[in-house]
């Protein structure tokens, strides 16, 4: 019989449980060290396919700042993170951009979308009286 032991540190919450898994012929026979059910789910998912949320930035023109923060709207396979990043390499947006605006659909075939994580106003459209004039990048 082929017995295999694997170790994981859970990343679901800040506790970071140290979880040991025992596999026999590829089947899970025990999971030890997890303080909650979510830890067990995490380990099973890691064994099947490690999934991560990706956060990064894309350039945006006509805004106060050079970069717009974005994220995947759900976890994507860890092994595809670099593919996702590559697909974002040539993107350039123009302000205004609304938060949760979809920038890339089904990025790198992951079924996840890349969405903006903030509102980005166009710089010359500043009618909001509460806001003061722009001074870009001092110091």
């Amino acid at each position: 019989m082929n017995v295999e032991k694997k170790h994981f540190t859970c990343i679901v919450c800040p506790i970071g449980c140290e979880i040991d898994v025992e596999l026999q012929n590829g089947n899970v026979v025990s999971i030890n060290g997890s303080k909650c059910e979510k830890g067990k789910e995490f380990v099973l998912q890691e064994l099947e396919e490690a999934m991560r949320i990706l956060t990064t930035t894309v350039p945006v023109k006509g805004a106060k700042w050079a970069m717009l923060p974005v994220r995947t709207d759900k976890p994507v396979p860890k092994r595809l993170l670099s593919k996702v990043i590559e697909q974002l390499a040539d993107i350039e947006l123009h302000a205004p951009v609304k938060m949760y605006h979809v920038i890339v659909k089904d990025v790198a075939g992951t079924d996840a979308n890349i969405v903006a994580t903030r509102n980005m106003k166009k710089v010359n459209q500043r009618k909001d009286a509460k806001e003061a004039p722009v001074s870009r990048k001092e110091g």
């Binding site: 540190t9 859970c10 990343i11 679901v12 919450c13 800040p14 506790i15 970071g16 991560r52």
Partner: peptide, 8 residues
Amino acid sequence: GLKRNIVQ
């Protein structure tokens, strides 16, 4: 830092 950050 937090353990989860060491991992991810």
